[in-house]
Simulated scan of single mutants.
Amino acid sequence: MTEPRKILAYCDKMFTPSESFIPRGYSAFSRLKPVYIGHTINGSVPQGAEAIDLSSLHGPMGVNGFKQFGMISGKLEQTLRDLNPIAIHASFGKSGAYALPLARKLNLPLAVTYYGGDATKKSNTKNSFTRVYNRRRQALWDEADLILPCSDFIRRELLGKGAPDEKMVVHHNTADPEKFQPGDKQDLIVFAGRWSPKKGIDTLIEALSLLGDALNGWTVRLCGNKPEGQRDAFEQGLHDKLAASGVKVELAGWVPADEMPGHWAQARIACIPSKRAPSGDAEGLPLVCIEAMLSGCALAATRHAGITECVKEGETGYLVDEGDVRGLAESLRKMLMDPAATAAMGEAGRAFALESFNLQKQSVKLEDHLMRIAGLSV
């Protein structure tokens, strides 16, 4: 059997727990093998994975010389050449900017995946000489061989900023259907995400307060909150608002990625009320949508970012405008009052996700994309 060829998988902060979708994206590779490169390792290295912290490989100016000025030491160059890689795949725009000098030096094709805020935040989209990504952004788009926005929404955001449409291919986020499956369903509504402006949990809390007796017999479980004393002012305000509303909820705290399948398996309804934050930060295509759909949940969500690409109105869930408290409350009320229709939405959502957002299928597509830019037959 032919030995897999290697690619350099650049993510500057490797194996961050909340970004487990990055190594999962390579899980079905058979012809290529990722070698992870970056400057910090923020979590457990997956079993069998090869990872290189580049920090000790730089010259006299160290990491700063590499990031700010694209300086590549002989030691770094030789270490990477010895791997005989055929391409570089960077996750997030900033990592793409850091990887660009490497692609030039090693004469390798470069692909970069955009996930959300890297394409939408004002800090990333303005002109700024002091920020490496902003300074190299146009060069990255000009020289990259492939740009992979995680949703058509992100493609349009990049297009509006000057990225070349002919280089972009939408490559949707995915989840593993082996991990996310329907379980013993309960009368349970689940929200999962950081308690930040982008996630729209403020909209959800207000919507829940309008439901009154419709919530009788149902459990509302909110995941992702921080303990008291660790919250920023925005999150603490949400807790205060929740306490004042009188709505009874379960606060699950931060839930590790490996434990989320159990929560979605129990839930009948997933609520994803995301909206664009004042900073411009927006979702790409929230993974929680796909995880919940694979788990047989109906979705109460907003017309935000890539959510409209995975929620079929009236078929797999309901959609309302961003920040529409009354609309979200009405969506939830309809789901609570018609459990049979809600269950049917959950079943339809799972079928759609299995076809269009299947981890194994998308991983093979990513491998095909990287093979193509490397000039190898698919």
Results as ranks from 00 to 15, higher is better:
Gly317Arg: 03
Asp368Asn: 13
Thr342Pro: 02
Gly346Ala: 12
Met371Ile: 05
Glu322Arg: 08
Lys312Ile: 15
Ala340Cys: 11
Ala329Phe: 11
Met371Tyr: 05
Thr308Val: 15
Glu330Asp: 15
Leu336Tyr: 06
His369Arg: 12
Ala340Asp: 15
Ala341Asn: 13
Ser331Val: 10
Lys361Thr: 13
Lys312Met: 13
Val325Thr: 14
Ser377Trp: 08
Phe357Thr: 03
Cys310Arg: 00
Arg303Ser: 10
Lys365Gly: 00
Ala340Pro: 03
Leu332Glu: 06
Thr302Lys: 01
Glu355Leu: 10
Asp321Leu: 11
Ala300Gly: 09
Asp324Asn: 13
Val320Ile: 11
Glu322Phe: 08
Leu319Ser: 05
Ser377Thr: 15
Lys334His: 14
Ala298Gln: 05
Phe352Cys: 04
Gly327Glu: 10
Glu347His: 14
Ala341Trp: 13
Ile373Leu: 08
Leu366Trp: 01
Lys312Thr: 14
Asp321Ser: 13
Glu313Gly: 03
Glu355Cys: 05
Asn358Gln: 07
Gly349Ser: 09
Ala374Phe: 01
Ser363Phe: 00
Ala298Met: 07
Gly327Val: 11
Val325Phe: 10
Leu354Ile: 02
Lys334Gly: 10
Ile307Ser: 01
Glu322Asp: 12
Phe357Asp: 00
Thr308Cys: 11
Ala298Asn: 04
Glu315His: 10
Lys312Asp: 12
Glu313Trp: 04
Arg303Asp: 05
Gly349Leu: 09
Glu367Gln: 07
Lys365Leu: 12
Gly314Arg: 04
Ala300Ser: 14
Val311Ala: 04
Ala298Ser: 10
Leu354His: 06
Glu347Asp: 15
Lys361Val: 10
Leu299Cys: 09
Glu313Lys: 01
Gln362Pro: 01
His369Pro: 01
Gly306Asp: 07
Glu355Ala: 12
Gln362Ile: 12
Leu366Arg: 00
Gln362Val: 08
Val311Trp: 05
Pro339Lys: 12
Phe357Ser: 00
Met337Glu: 15
Pro339Val: 13
Tyr318Met: 06
Ala300Met: 05
Asp324Tyr: 10
Ala340Val: 15
Leu370Ala: 02
Gly375Asn: 06
Ala300Phe: 05
Glu315Thr: 08
Lys365Met: 10
Val320Asn: 07
